[in-house]
Design a protein around this nucleic acid. Structure first.
Lengths: 133, 133
DNA sequence: GTGGGTGCAAATAATTTGCACGGTA
DNA sequence: TACCGTGCAAATTATTTGCACCCAC
């Protein structure tokens, strides 16, 4: 039951929180901005406020339920945290965001950083791509 | 002579443009935000306006004189375009930005993307690191 | 001299915050 | 019932734009 995740995060189970979490679960592997959620949830004649969405997204991110991404200088987008690390490809024609994971790439980064005398804490990699016709 | 770059970009050679370009040339390999430049150039008792800096940075970026980066959701930063592609490491403790280039990493990305049926147009890679003590 | 360039202030855009009211535990 | 959560509007932050004056060519 989805309310449990919210409770586990130390948050009260309220309608806006349920609606936001449900929306992500109904659209697995997809990414949404605060405004996307605002528009979509309002469509289902619900009186949610944009400020609430921003607040809840931050809380869910802190709780580890969602992951936040900021590509370019576009709107921040969120996705369900599946626990599996991955990076993103953005199709420059369609704007579509695709996830990928490549072990070799991950290991190479760790090795590279270490050769400079650092340890890798985190990384942010976005590949901008175009379909080959 | 530095005014030439500005002229080549189809822009008039004005004091603010010279000051901004000179500032980057005096600090090679460093990255600055619009606000950094504003503060620094004003210190040398010059009456530059912040809006002018934003405008000039955009013009210089379009002209290929500068490269713009947007890490995290922090201020946009600019650096001189040396013509050589590189990526960035950010030291999470000091905030210092270091450039690096790794052929293997570059090639791996091209190969990876191609295996998904795409061609690589551009990429954005930032490694967040910590010094090993 | 003319059209582009500048500084200032006001406008935007994304996000955050203050506040009075409402709902969860 | 106590307090957290909500919606709305106002505040913030980074950046852009309108406008009257100024200067490079």
């Amino acid at each position: 039951m989805k309310g449990q995740d919210i409770k586990d995060a130390g948050l009260k189970v309220t309608l806006p929180r349920l609606q936001i979490l449900e929306f992500f679960e109904k659209n697995p592997g997809k990414h949404f901005s605060a405004d996307d959620l605002f528009t979509q949830i309002r469509k289902s004649n619900n009186e949610i406020g944009l400020a609430t969405i921003y607040r809840v997204l931050n809380q869910f991110e802190s709780a580890g339920l969602l992951v936040k991404h900021q590509f370019d200088n576009a709107l921040a987008i969120y996705e369900l945290d599946t626990g599996e690390h991955h990076d993103h490809m953005v199709d420059v024609d369609s704007g579509e965001v695709k996830e990928f994971y490549n072990q070799e790439l991950e290991e190479l980064q760790v090795k590279l950083v270490r050769s400079y005398g650092y340890e890798l804490i985190d990384h942010n990699m976005v590949l901008y791509v175009k379909k080959i016709k």
